Computed example of a mutant assay.
Amino acid sequence: MSEKCLYKKAQDDDDLDTLSTVCFQINPGVQLREVPTNGEEYLLKVIKERQSYSTVTKCNKDYSKFAKNQSCFVKELPHAKAPDKLKPTIEWQNIQVADFSDVRMYISRLLAKKSLWPKNLDTVAIESNNINSWKSFFAEREPTLRCVLGLNQTLLDRGLEMLTEILNKVEKGETIDHKTGQWIYAFLACTRQPLVSDTVSILRNLARKCAELRSHIDPEDENANVAAAPLNIFICIVARYFRQYDLAD
C-alpha cells in the first residue's frame, strides 16, 4: 500500500499574497465526497467549505437605530485628587491593607466552614432596590458577623451601591458618619473574590465618591485629617487591596 504524505507546502516569500499559508498538500487525485472516508478527503471537504466564506466578515446590518445613545467606549467618571495635606503616605496605606487583609482572611475561614459561624444568624428581609429599606436596615442594625455573614454577593453589591447613594447626601466639607463607615467596611470585608465586573464598577464608584468628598475638606481645618481618615481608608482598600490601582493615592 502506497503511503501519502501530508506536509507544509514550501513557498517563496514572493508567492505569498495572503496572511495564511497552505499547511497541508492534498493529492490531486483525491475526490470530494459528501461523507469523507479518510483524512485527505476530510481535509479537502474542510478546505472547500472554507472557500465559501470571505476572509474578513463584516456586519451588513444597521444596528444604529437600536443604540442611538450608546458608545463603544465606557466613560470613566473623574477621580478627584487628594489635597497634599490630606494625602496618606504609602506606609499608612500598607498598614490599612494589612489590617484589612487580616479581617478578610478571618471571614474567608468562616465562609469556608459554616460550623464556625455565630449561632442564630440574623434573618435579613430587605427590599433590595428600595433605598429607604436599606436606610432603615443600616440605622436599626449593627454591622456584626451575625448580620453580614449570611448576605449573598448580590445583596452585598446592592448594599454598597446604597451606601454610595447615602454618601451623595453628605454635605461638602463633611465626612462619613461613624456607623455608615462601619457598614462600608463590613460590606467590603465580606465581598467575594474573584470580583465580577459589576462588583468592580460598584467598588470604583465608592472610591470615586470618597475622593470627591475628601476634595471638599478644608486641609487647613484642625480636624481635617480626622475627617479624611475614613475616606482615605476606603479609597486605599479599593485601590490597593482590590487592585484598582489607577484610583490609588
Results as ranks from 00 to 15, higher is better:
32 L>R: 12
185 Y>L: 15
84 D>Q: 11
70 Q>S: 14
105 M>E: 11
187 F>E: 02
85 K>F: 06
23 C>S: 15
197 S>L: 06
87 K>G: 01
136 S>E: 11
191 T>S: 13
245 Y>Q: 06
65 K>E: 04
204 R>K: 15
85 K>A: 15
96 Q>N: 03
194 P>W: 04
40 E>Y: 11
142 E>N: 08
237 I>C: 08
80 A>N: 12
218 D>R: 02
131 I>A: 03
146 R>D: 11
215 S>D: 10
175 T>Q: 12
72 C>W: 02
164 T>P: 00
53 Y>R: 15
221 D>C: 14
124 V>G: 02
220 E>Q: 13
138 F>Y: 13
191 T>H: 04
48 K>H: 01
168 N>H: 02
23 C>K: 14
143 P>V: 09
84 D>I: 15
145 L>M: 10
175 T>E: 09
24 F>H: 13
181 G>P: 05
42 Y>E: 10
175 T>K: 10
112 A>V: 06
61 K>F: 09
153 Q>C: 10
241 Y>I: 07
49 E>L: 03
154 T>E: 14
58 K>D: 12
227 A>L: 15
196 V>R: 07
138 F>P: 00
56 V>N: 05
144 T>K: 05
82 A>N: 08
9 K>N: 10
162 M>Q: 09
137 F>Y: 14
88 P>V: 08
161 E>G: 06
228 A>K: 05
58 K>E: 15
38 N>K: 10
14 D>R: 10
5 C>Q: 11
147 C>S: 11
249 D>N: 11
41 E>L: 05
84 D>S: 09
66 F>H: 14
47 I>L: 08
142 E>L: 09
35 V>G: 03
16 L>C: 01
142 E>S: 08
154 T>V: 15
40 E>N: 13
103 V>P: 00
78 P>V: 03
142 E>A: 08
110 L>V: 04
116 L>F: 09
69 N>M: 05
224 A>L: 13
7 Y>E: 07
160 L>R: 07
178 H>A: 12
47 I>C: 07
241 Y>Q: 03
223 N>M: 01
163 L>D: 01
159 G>I: 08
225 N>C: 05
198 D>I: 09
155 L>R: 00
118 P>H: 12
147 C>N: 11
158 R>A: 13
241 Y>N: 07
24 F>L: 15
53 Y>T: 06
7 Y>M: 03
40 E>T: 11
171 E>W: 05
172 K>L: 14
166 I>C: 08
68 K>V: 13
8 K>N: 04
160 L>F: 05
204 R>P: 02
88 P>H: 07
82 A>D: 07
197 S>V: 05
41 E>Y: 02
228 A>Y: 06
52 S>L: 02
190 C>H: 05
244 Q>M: 10
182 Q>L: 15
86 L>G: 03
104 R>L: 01
19 L>H: 07
110 L>A: 00
239 A>V: 05
25 Q>W: 02
89 T>F: 09
28 P>K: 01
197 S>P: 02
95 I>N: 00
146 R>C: 07
173 G>K: 12
147 C>M: 15
138 F>D: 00
162 M>C: 08
235 I>D: 00
57 T>Y: 10
159 G>R: 06
56 V>S: 05
63 Y>M: 11
112 A>E: 13
172 K>R: 13
77 L>E: 13
59 C>E: 11
71 S>Y: 07
234 F>Y: 14
187 F>G: 01
184 I>E: 01
138 F>H: 00
36 P>L: 14
